[in-house]
Structures are given as C-alpha cells and as structure tokens.
Amino acid sequence: MSALGELRTLRRQGAHKGSQALSEAARKEERAAYLFLVPWLAGLVLITAGPMVASLYVSLTDYNLLQPPEFLGLANYLQMLDDERLLNSLGVTFVYVFVSVPLQLAAALGIAVVLNRGMRGLAFYRSVYYLPSLLGGSVAVAVLWRRLFGADGLVNQGLALLGVHDAPAWVADPDTALGTLVVLNVWTFGAPMVIFLAGLRQVPVSLYEAAAVDGAGRWARFARITLPLITPIIFFNVVLQIIHAFQAFTQAFIVSGGTGGPSDSTMFFTLYLYQTGFGNFQMGYASAMAWVLLVIVAAFTAINFWASRFWVFYDD
C-alpha cells in the first residue's frame, strides 16, 4: 500500500505544476465530464427532478389526486407530529433497518467469502443461494411465508418435533410478525452477496500469493488484504441497503396483504405513506411523509459518507 501512497503523492504534486497548462487541461477534463454526464443530466431534468419537486410542492398542499391541489403551507408536516400511526410506522421502520441490514450484510459477506474460491461446485452453490432473491416480491412469497410461519406452518411443525408446542403464529402475532419480515429480508441476501462476490473478484490474486509467502494465515490474509480492499464495496452495500431498508415496502405489502398488520406491527413508513396517498386520497400528506423520509435517509447517508473516511480505502 505504501508504494501506491507514494505514487499518489507524486501525482498530486504533479497536478500543481504549471498552472497555465493545468487550467487548459482542467477545462478539457471538465468538458469531457459534462459530456459523459449528458444522459444523466438529461434524465435528471426531464424525468427525475420535475416529479420530485412536484411532490415537494404537493407536500405543502391538500391534494386528493382527483382535484387540483390546494395550498396549505406546513400543515401536513405539523399533522405528522400528532399522528400516532405514523410515529408507530417510523418506529417499525427503524427497528427493521437496524436489525435487518446488519444481519443481511453479514450473511451476504460471509457467504460471498465462502463461495468465492477454493471449492468445487461453486457456480452451482452461488446460484442456489441466489434463488430466494429471484423470488423477490412475487405474490407467491406471500403464500409461502404464511405456510412457513403460520400457526401450523413448517417452522412450528419443526418446533413441535423438538418438543416446543406453544410457539406463536409468527406471521399473525404482532410481537413476531416484523421478525418474519427481517428473516425474509436476510433470506434474500442475493443482491449484496453478488456485489460482494464481484468485489472479491477484483482483489488481485498476486496480493494473496505475496501474503502466503510471508506466512500469513487465512484470517490474517482476510483481515489485512481482503477486507481493506473491498471496503468501497462494503461501503456501497451499507449505504444502499440502508436506503432500501428505509423504503422497504413490497415484502410487507405482500405478506400482510397490504394492511401492515397484524395491528400495524408491519406497518412500514412507506406502506403507511402508500395507504395514505392511494387508499385515503391524501397525496399531500403522503408527499410530506415522503420528504420527511428523504431527510432521514439523506441524514443517514451523509453520516455514512462522513464516517467512510475512517474505514473505506480507495485506490485512487
């Protein structure tokens, strides 16, 4: 790493030489950058930004979707403070994020490492482990989850064999329903697993070989070489999985039949937002909720980026 560091320093020094030549080069680089960004900028202006700002405006209005919005000011935002179901849904969402994201990422990384190399039949195993993620939000999952975690589901039948007879009806009990969704999320760890795998594949074998010559053990090699080199990928997964988990919707929607039940125990923030907007025709309020969520998620993402300086190592 130190050799790379030296190179980096050299490069930086070089960059500050000859300001005249630099600004010419810098201008060229900037022009190139904007050219490369043309599709993205066009998408931002034509497709993404308009609806986003429209929803920000709508969040300040009473908008029932069928009639033009009426301006309200901050009323929607103030109403949230008194909305117990909303505060509850926020709590459910936070629990979900903080429990399921670490579990899912740990499972994904662990299995990606095991399935990276050194075993026969890896391609097969990888595919098998990805299978649940293919099912994703399919309606079949709803039935499946009830069959697994219902009162007379497979899990309880298994427990009965072990002598446990008073197990709850996991999906239908407010104390455990959210837990089954966490399990569902962990079970579909395929996406971060594949990203980890791809990251692991970028780690040059030569580094391992060098370390093996040095006599480093397997754990030492993992901790000293693999882990630092894939920190950008770990970082990516952490950031994105948190963003996704805060917006978790489909699985709760499908498993609870759209209700967020039993007794609001799986009422995620976005599910409540959706019910409010489309079920109750309060798109103004729903939009306000969405922007609150955006601020929360953005804050977490910003913290993540700030914290990343301390543990993420880039090669550039």
């Binding site: 009830r146 009162a151 709850p168 009806a169 999906v171 239908a172 009990d173 039993p262 007794s263």
Partner: peptide, 13 residues
Amino acid sequence: PAAVSAEVAGFDT
C-alpha cells in the same frame, strides 16, 4: 384467538 383470525388472508385461509 386473535392470531388465528389475523392469519386470514383470502378465502383459502
């Protein structure tokens, strides 16, 4: 009991 009824999700259940 509540949990039995909460499992209802369509006519099959």
